[in-house]
């Protein structure tokens, strides 16, 4: 399951690709919504660990515009519910993630991202 929480952690690691290698862009994706348990404490702890702009951009790419462009200072229940949905309930099942810099394509199939590189691509 490539959820946006996972996408927010993945960078291109092709040899020499060290700038503009995060976030990866989604391509030809199929998504599925699956409900998951709401845990506000987890979300609060996780917020500072997120690359916020990458998350908002990825959500927009998948057609979800519920998150504000800036992380809000006042974190209320409504915001946490939106964050929960975007981070944990949108599953990318098929498609690919593409590096903005070197254009390397990382396929996603059956909900699993293939981030392996061939021997000569490894830094």
């Amino acid at each position: 399951m490539v959820r946006l929480i996972t996408h927010n952690l993945l960078a291109c690691h092709v040899k020499g690709c060290t700038r503009n290698n995060f976030p990866l862009l989604f391509e030809n994706v199929q998504i599925e919504i699956q409900e998951s348990d709401f845990n506000p404490d987890f979300l609060r702890n996780f917020m500072p660990k997120l690359e916020w702009k990458a998350l908002v951009d990825a959500a927009r790419q998948l057609g979800d515009t519920s998150l504000p462009l800036e992380q809000p200072e006042m974190v209320d229940e409504e915001f946490l519910k939106a964050l929960h949905h975007v981070l944990l309930e949108i599953h990318v099942m098929e498609g690919a993630m593409v590096c903005q810099n070197c254009k390397h394509v990382y396929p996603i199939s059956n909900g699993i991202p293939n981030m392996l590189l061939a021997e000569h691509e490894i830094g």
């Binding site: 929480i5 996972t6 993945l10 960078a11 690691h13 991202p113 981030m115 590189l117």
Partner: peptide
């Protein structure tokens, strides 16, 4: 959340 890769590369 499985990611197919070697160690922790990406």
């Amino acid at each position: 959340e499985p990611v197919q890769c070697s160690l922790t590369a990406p």
